[in-house]
Design a protein around this nucleic acid. Structure first.
Lengths: 345, 345
DNA sequence: TTGTACGCGTTATCAA
DNA sequence: TTGATAACGCGTACAA
């Protein structure tokens, strides 16, 4: 038995001390060698050696111990209004792709669009001492106690300039209206989303502006509001629209979920899409190309939005600059079969 | 300045020591007083006093420090193959609904159907000292080191009797085949799922049995395997099926995602659903009723499956019995417009 | 019944 | 450039 193999038998994962013993140096040096910020304090060869051995031994820093020392949990609270909306899973993936190389883990919480539930989950995550927040929910942002852990909004923005990553709502709507106008539509209705949410109000005001820009008549009978981003709310708003008596040949929906609600109500009333009414959605969520008919919609880069939001947050946590903290990613109209020239009836 | 206010100025949240100083006892006693299991070791009055002061001071135990000591985290690792599959979000909700009242938080991890990524996320969660696992991925279960933290399988089962919550695959497939037979189909093809996954192989063997039970001819040309539960894999398998030359009037798909792949390939080849080929899926995932055509499929109770899995896991963590640890929830055929009587061509 | 001492794995602060 | 040591906040043997 060699003198070197004096390590006591260890259970559990490889620890800093294990690596140190193997390399024959002090744990503190291993820590320095492995830590990005302190690596320069260590002999280059030693650092290399340490990295190698660490990888060999499958060393992974224990985030709990690290957190205890640094008073960081290495976790991020991700607060979503509705995980069953296909818009969000790709964003979550983007978030994880950015977080994971940095050693952070996402704690995902659903609010079901319910303010009470939002408070509850935020409280839970706060007790877990998350180091930062990514929020896609529409709620008073002070709930997050931003002075404790920084917040980045995703697919949302507020008036007080909280850092945010959003799609280009305005441009997307302009493209959508332009598309309908090119097809020959002039009576374009709007099933707008919740006006308390920035995406809802931005898209609605962009609709107004675009209509004006094209010299089209604005008519109150052509606008109804869905009270949530759901199929149900979209269907209800479309019902109101039809009952309101305004004539229209196209509907601009606040997002793809409400567009599905439009499909539903139009179907109920015997109106075909796109033969009787063209429908445009927003988001190009997963499966939008599979619906009946495939939905013309505005694509925003889901995965990248999540990624950028997480990067932004990490920068804020690291104490980086808050500049360029409002990221607007480009939107792109995707034409499918829910839009066509109006019937001229 | 009173004698008692000798506390050094402290930043950050109230700690055990802060409370101890205020009460004038040792931190260890405070710990015992506040901890349910050790409270009986402490003078009743002292315990009361401590609780009061702790509440006054807004003391919250630091879960990180506690975790480091107890190697418990009050978290559950939820490992999913693909969050973008609409099957899973409702299950996640069910899990959260069961976990949250018990004070546990779900740590959700995606593997993207990738074994390397699975190892990585499991490792990450293990370092976070999750107290239990819910896994919906098809992987060697020893990856989870079940002796450390118990494991419950969701929508999966294994041969070694790991506790699991699944839908009734066999009965669901029997219902689906019965439906097709009633419509008059005799040449029923199968785009089976990955055979390494229990749901894939169970459904496939149920197909075989059902075909035999109805006296229908089994034909190798009528079976192809998708190598993952994805649209892409379903499309590829359907392509192989068509190129294999076997004649059929209906396809039983392994799940709804692969059924979408069938739609795609059949469309490419100019075959209509259901006019030329009937298609049946499995899961009745969100939006299955929205596809073109609305998909006939087998419904399993997503939310309840998640709920039951989490309940089962909590029971195991609490050291409860392992009895009735294999839960099979009923499946129900939902007939929509992707199936009809064969053309007789 | 309570206090002491220690350790979980890591990092920060010294000193060498 | 590295090592020794302490400390993060808590829980738990052990001693008193």
């Amino acid at each position: 038995m060699s003198v070197e193999s004096e390590d006591p038998p260890r259970a559990g994962p490889t620890t800093l001390r294990d690596v140190a013993r193997r390399v024959g140096i002090h744990p503190a040096t291993v820590s320095r060698a492995l830590n990005e910020n302190t690596r320069h304090l260590v002999n280059a060869e030693t650092a290399l050696r340490v990295s190698e051995v660490a990888r060999e031994m499958g060393y992974r820093p224990n985030p709990i111990a690290r957190g205890l020392k640094t008073s960081r949990s290495m976790t991020i609270g991700v607060v979503l209004p509705d995980l069953t909306n296909p818009l969000f899973p790709p964003m979550v993936r983007g978030i994880e792709d950015a977080l994971s190389p940095a050693g952070f883990t996402a704690l995902i919480a659903n609010t079901d669009n319910d303010i009470a539930r939002a408070r509850s989950v935020v409280q839970t995550l706060r007790l877990r001492q998350v180091d930062g927040w990514i929020s896609a929910v529409a709620t008073r942002d002070d709930m997050f106690e931003e002075h404790v852990a920084p917040l980045v909004l995703l697919n949302r923005q507020d008036e007080v300039g909280t850092p945010a990553v959003v799609g280009d709502d305005r441009d997307g709507i302009v493209q959508a209206v332009a598309h309908l106008v090119e097809l020959g539509h002039t009576r374009i209705a709007c099933v707008a989303g919740p006006q308390a949410i920035s995406t809802g109000s931005n898209r609605y005001s962009a609709y107004i502006e675009a209509m004006l820009a094209y010299g089209l008549e604005l008519d109150h009978a052509l606008v109804r509001f869905a009270d949530s981003w759901s199929e149900r709310a979209g269907a209800a708003a479309t019902r109101e629209l039809l009952d309101g008596g305004g004539e229209f040949t196209a509907v601009l929906a606040g997002n793809d979920m409400t567009a599905l609600g439009c499909y539903e109500t139009l179907g109920e009333r015997g109106l075909g899409v796109p033969d009787d009414v063209s429908v445009v959605g927003f988001n190009d969520m997963h499966f939008a190309d599979r619906f009946d008919p495939p939905l013309t919609t505005v694509r925003i880069p889901h995965h990248e939005m999540g990624l950028r939001a997480a990067e932004l947050l990490l920068a804020r946590i690291a104490g980086g600059d808050d500049e360029s903290s409002h990221v607007v990613l480009p939107a792109e109209l995707v034409v499918r079969r829910s839009t066509r020239a109006p019937n001229g009836r």
